[in-house]
């Protein structure tokens, strides 16, 4: 893939987040006022949809579940966060927001360990 149109700039209000589907890839668009950013849609902590749990304030994105925070421009960790945010490249063209999707970005969540062996019950 490559540069794709996601939405028109007016669809995402200032200081807010909105999730879009770009040919099967879910993308979260943030409107910082002067710029846009694009992230994978889930919180890197525990798969929460940031569109619902995220709060944008003063250039900082806070997931309201467990208060992980990031710099919205760079994705760098702030506060409680233990993993940075991943970003897609974004540009604006003629009132549209475009993202550069080489491949879908996803976080790795902790693998659940398996204890399915008989010695478990000893």
């Amino acid at each position: 893939m490559s540069w794709k149109r996601v939405c028109s700039a007016s669809e995402v209000a200032e200081k807010s987040l909105k999730q879009f589907d770009v040919e099967g890839v879910p993308v979260l668009i943030a409107n910082l006022g002067d710029e846009f950013r694009a992230y994978p849609p889930l919180c890197p902590h525990m798969e929460e949809r940031l569109e619902e749990s995220g709060i944008c304030e003063a250039g900082v994105l806070t997931c309201s579940k467990h208060l992980w925070q990031w710099d919205m421009r760079t994705g760098e960790m702030r506060g409680e966060a233990e993993k940075p945010l991943l970003l897609y490249e974004v540009k604006q063209d003629n009132g549209d927001v475009l993202v550069n999707i080489e491949k879908e970005l996803e976080y790795e969540y902790d693998e659940e360990t398996d204890d399915d062996d008989d010695s478990f019950w000893d």
Partner: peptide, 24 residues
């Protein structure tokens, strides 16, 4: 969170294998 059992009292969470995955 999705895919977890959550105790609403102090928000501890567990996965489907019974692992504790979150302590507030």
């Amino acid at each position: 969170n999705p895919k977890r059992m959550t105790c609403m009292f102090h928000a501890w969470q567990f996965d489907m294998k019974g692992n504790c995955v979150y302590i507030s």
